[in-house]
Design a protein around this nucleic acid. Sequence first.
DNA 1: TGAATATATGAACAATTGCTCATATATGGA
DNA 2: TCCATATATGAGCAATTGTTCATATATTCA
Lengths: 106, 106
Amino acid sequence: MDNSISRIQGAITRNSELFEEVSDLFKIFGDSSRLKILCALTQSDMCVSEISEFLSITQSAVSHQLRILKTSNLVKTRRVGKNIIYSLADQHIKTIIDCGMEHVSE
Amino acid sequence: MDNSISRIQGAITRNSELFEEVSDLFKIFGDSSRLKILCALTQSDMCVSEISEFLSITQSAVSHQLRILKTSNLVKTRRVGKNIIYSLADQHIKTIIDCGMEHVSE
DNA sequence: TGAATATATGAACAATTGCTCATATATGGA
DNA sequence: TCCATATATGAGCAATTGTTCATATATTCA
């Protein structure tokens, strides 16, 4: 077996947890509802009912997905009056989305 | 409703198919087996049995995943002797993986 | 405080997914 | 041509996922 290749194997095997983490991250972007939500938040912070209305997704479905996004630290919240405003946790999220967009429209 | 926000809504609604495509792309990166395979191929072209051995994944499982990767045009193949050598279809794939890796190790 | 409203949550269900096991296919080389 | 080997494929199954429906929770504001 080629030496450099066996080094790769080692790297991948040893970092098995890293691959879980990264694939879990991609998994979150791998649902169109979540992707749309994230993309919407890329342009403007929004409350749950706004997101729901804009994307024509049930309020419940949006809430469920937002919980996943929040648990994964991709979005954060703040209260304004009666509403909970969701926003992206950081700008790198947009980078990831753009990265995928670019690949699709090659 | 704010005008700029309604513009976003239009953009997302009209490009519903785009979001399906992009989320389908991320979905592929969203499985650790596939991610490992892609990552391995980032470093070196490999045949099926090599991938299988390196990642300690069944030959069958690898084959199944490779078919998905090939159908999605993420990998391409060439025959060398008895083996089918798999390689990345393009270098942008590495960019996407790196993008995810970076986010995880923030 | 009480009603109205916004958001969250839980159970249930259908659909999808990734694996295994068995086996088919196809190619190279003797 | 025939065998050995490499890869692909199909069925079946358990696990996971995303949605809906019903309802709980919580906060604002009159």
